[in-house]
């Protein structure tokens, strides 16, 4: 079969062209790891990366953002200006975009959260294939490496070049502007991606595993190792809980109410005004996180709120693994 392809060395030029119209966000190195960052120099982009420290959610649900502004004197509340500049997310892994789709579900169904949704306008996603490492388990949660849901363009890596597939009209229009960078190439089939299954059971029916698992010993065992530092929640693409607080700029009438990433692993998370916490025990909190991912919250297609990026395992200082915990239940 023949298809369009782009050589690796031409990618910076292709990005440069994108930059004339869009803000471009792509993975770049940070020390031993990677982060998503607004691109100034397309040469910094890496396409062979495992995972970034934080998921893409930081652009749509920033660690801290103002929900409401107000003036103490005028006694008015105002919605802050929410920018949604046209943005291309370049070099995105498919589980990453699945994380965004889960957030879309969380913020877009029921009561609609415009603070989030406004930032989801004018986004273009350009995906890229990846080589799973020891931490990835996306396939185990129903996200095979060739899933292209949500992407406008998808780049499949062959040795020194990438096959370019335009999947939407927006994608097609970009690819048409890239013509000078593209070449015809023929290929037999997609490269085989080795993916070790990390869960003993497929995600279908995994919710049922939690019936009767409430008092499973794994919760207490895991909680013995857990700091309750909240890292697993913060780095998770599908965790979106937040805390809300008000602040007044000292000596002024300017006040604002912000939301900040929160974590269900922290004791104070469920505390009510009287001081009672409803998940006081550390194991209650460990169980809540895992259950929320695989049983409590599912999207409209019954897919769990875990996309298998492996960040929570990779970044847990205490070496707690969500897959080990799940396997103990299965």
């Amino acid at each position: 079969m023949s298809a369009k392809a782009i050589a690796r060395e031409k990618i910076p030029d292709a990005v440069l062209l994108l930059k004339t119209k869009y803000r471009v966000i792509a993975p770049v190195p940070k020390g031993k790891t990677f982060v998503f960052k607004k691109i100034d120099d397309p040469q910094e982009i890496v396409l062979d990366y495992n995972t970034t420290i934080l998921p893409l959610k930081k652009f749509f649900l920033p660690p801290r953002e103002v929900l409401v502004e107000y003036n103490l004197k005028k006694q008015e509340y105002r919605e802050p200006e929410i920018k949604s500049e046209p943005t291309v997310f370049f070099g995105i892994h498919n589980y990453e975009l699945q994380g965004i789709l889960r957030l879309d579900y969380a913020f877009g169904t029921g009561v609609k959260d415009e603070t989030y949704l406004k930032k989801r306008k004018n986004n273009i996603f350009i995906g890229v294939t990846y080589t799973p490492d020891d931490f990835h388990f996306a396939k185990s949660v129903g996200i095979p490496t060739d899933l292209k849901e949500g992407f406008d363009i998808f780049l499949t890596k062959y040795n020194s070049h990438y096959r370019v597939e335009a999947l939407t009209d927006k994608g097609k229009s970009i690819v048409s502007q890239w013509s000078e960078f593209l070449e015809e190439c023929s290929y037999d089939s997609d490269p085989v991606v080795h993916f070790k299954n990390k869960l003993k059971q497929s995600v279908a029916g995994i919710r049922e595993v939690f019936h009767g698992a409430y008092n499973h010993p794994v919760w207490k065992e895991t909680s013995k190792k857990c700091y309750s530092c909240g890292t697993c929640n913060l780095v998770c693409p599908t965790c979106y809980c937040f805390d809300v607080s008000d602040e007044v700029v000292l000596g002024t009438n300017r006040g604002s109410r912000s939301r900040r990433w929160d974590s269900c692993q922290i004791l104070g998370f469920t505390e009510v005004a009287g001081g009672e916490a409803f998940r006081e025990k550390r194991y209650d909190r460990v169980r809540h996180r895992m259950s929320r991912k695989f049983a409590y919250i599912m999207d409209d297609r019954d897919r769990p709120f875990c996309v298998g990026c492996g960040r929570c395992i990779r970044q847990c200082t205490a070496n707690i693994s969500i897959t080990d915990v799940m396997n103990a239940l299965l």
């Binding site: 913020f107 029921g110 009561v111 937040f242 809300v244 939301r259 929160d262 998370f269 469920t270």
Partner: peptide, 9 residues
Amino acid sequence: KCGVGKCGH
């Protein structure tokens, strides 16, 4: 905290 089913508390 949020009243609208988002914040998780």
